[in-house]
């Protein structure tokens, strides 16, 4: 029996705001098998982004348990968790988070800066291959300011995939894009999921991205609504 990519048990997260403490996640129990494309749907404020940050090890203020590929990340040191993020997880954000003082190729190779075993030439070749596959080969020397929104998100996807992660965590990846560009990005996710057996967890409030997923989870007030779990 294979180890799931993600398993949470009694996962809760309370954002401490003094008197205004707010429960973002409450007793979330989910299992995502390797190779799944899971879409977490929910309205704004339902805890989707918090779920992604917690699962990705960016937010450690949770209660409960999170296992990634069989390892309890709550027991990991900061350095071990950072290594896990670098080696096995790729992030795609709604706002792209590209570094505007760098060129496209420099942005894509940013994760390699923190790879203690990385080969610079191999990394550069991988970055060029990804840019070529994402249709940006001729924009490698440009800065993000010279790109459209869709191109920026493709650069962010290339960056997320540079170190060949097993898990891609996407936070509203089409939220800042027009319909056509968003559709093209969704196609890319489908391609990578299908061709590279990439496990994808995307949180969104857009139904069109959900239609591409193999499973849909609905989040409401920090709770997963099991009755509405849908398999594609």
């Amino acid at each position: 029996m294979s180890v799931p990519a993600i398993r949470t048990r009694g996962l809760s997260r309370v954002h401490d705001g003094g008197r205004d403490a707010r429960r973002a996640l409450a007793d979330v129990e989910i299992v995502v098998e390797e190779g799944e494309f899971v879409c977490v749907l929910g309205p704004s404020g339902s805890g989707k982004s918090t779920l992604l940050a917690v699962i990705g090890g960016l937010d450690r203020g949770y209660q409960g348990e999170i296992e990634l590929f069989g390892e309890d990340i709550g027991r990991m040191s900061d350095a071990a968790l950072a290594r896990l993020r670098g080696e096995r997880i790729g992030f795609v954000f709604q706002h792209f988070h590209l570094l505007h003082h760098l060129t496209v190729i420099e942005n894509v190779t940013t994760p390699a800066l923190f790879d203690p075993h990385g080969d610079e030439e191999a990394c550069l070749a991988r970055a060029k291959h990804l840019l070529d596959r994402l249709g940006l080969a001729d924009r490698a020397g440009d800065t993000p300011a010279e790109l459209s929104g869709g191109q920026r998100q493709r650069v962010a996807i290339a960056r997320a995939l540079l170190r060949k992660p097993k898990l891609l965590l996407c936070d509203e990846p089409t939220g800042n894009l027009d319909a056509d560009t968003g559709a093209r990005i969704i196609e890319l996710f489908e391609e990578f999921h299908r061709e590279e057996r990439l496990t994808i967890v995307a949180v969104t409030h857009e139904e069109r991205l959900a239609r591409a997923a193999t499973r849909i989870l609905r989040l409401h007030d920090g709770r997963v609504d099991a009755s509405n779990e849908v398999s594609a």
Partner: peptide
Amino acid sequence: LYRAVGATA
């Protein structure tokens, strides 16, 4: 972002 792509504290 650096932390997200693998940088330790």
